[in-house]
Design a protein around this nucleic acid. Sequence first.
DNA 1: TTGGGCTTGCAACTCAGTTGCATACACATT
DNA 2: AATGTGTATGCAACTGAGTTGCAAGCCCAA
Lengths: 145, 145
Amino acid sequence: MCERCNYAEMLEGHGVDPTPLRQAVLRSIGEESRPLAAVEIIAAVRDQMSINKVTLYRILDLLVDRGLVKRLSAGDRAFRYGMGETRHHPEHPHFVCSQCGVMECLEPDLLPAGIRKFQIKGKRIIKHVDVRFEGICESCLKARM
Amino acid sequence: MCERCNYAEMLEGHGVDPTPLRQAVLRSIGEESRPLAAVEIIAAVRDQMSINKVTLYRILDLLVDRGLVKRLSAGDRAFRYGMGETRHHPEHPHFVCSQCGVMECLEPDLLPAGIRKFQIKGKRIIKHVDVRFEGICESCLKARM
DNA sequence: TTGGGCTTGCAACTCAGTTGCATACACATT
DNA sequence: AATGTGTATGCAACTGAGTTGCAAGCCCAA
Ligand SMILES: [Mn+2]
Ligand SMILES: [Mn+2]
Ligand SMILES: [Zn+2]
Ligand SMILES: [Zn+2]
């Protein structure tokens, strides 16, 4: 998210006790520009303190449940975790590199305008739309030459 | 796909030996109107003949590789497998019920027009776009009342 | 008839995440 | 102070979906 975010305040604002581990998990996600896999989050947290992987997954569940974090599907078997939507961080599509698997955030204006208007279609309730671009990322492109 | 599809011919046309198991896997996928999880495909095939799960996954890999089948992400941990694109079966978005997990195919015209035009963006190569609507399906809606 | 490649099966494995249960700590009640 | 109650974390074992290694069966070619 941003360097001046107060993660403890964000947690408290969502009714979550801001324990050191929860702050560290949220900070690790917030300080990256792209959504991270659990294995990346655990590595980042462990640079500063010790954490068990079950605790990490429980914290992630809690943060996703409270809307602080968004669980994203990258098209492989591991979820990615990125910051939830706020006014400073609007909904946006993502890009996944089919070679190295990295997920990147794209500009919100790449979300096709009006994608929200398909709200009722054949008696379903549509809650949200997930748009994922797939291809080859810049760094994999460079490595090919 | 359709009842009059000749699955053996489709396999041969893509350079794949049309063994009974491969035909049964492709037929199981083609006869459904929605993409299936591997566990559903194996159940469908086993209604007619015996198959080992490793064989199923190897056949799925092969069919995906040849473009006969498309591997889709439903936002959970199990892939779904649906028929690949042809002239009779154009690209289309999907819907996933966040309650029961079922994936359904939506009309191709729900794909936002012009979504293909984001072909070059920030030095990435974009190969395709995956649009997935999430919400509550008709049958889960009924069951709520 | 022998040999190679393709197809399938079985056992064991991997990876990402989950469950069960125990321990530790905080804070409230007596 | 002693006790209880809930919350946070850890550890071991488990699960589900898919993968790997290797062996066996089959087909056709030399
Ligand atoms: Mn993002
Ligand atoms: Mn479909
Ligand atoms: Zn890449
Ligand atoms: Zn449903």
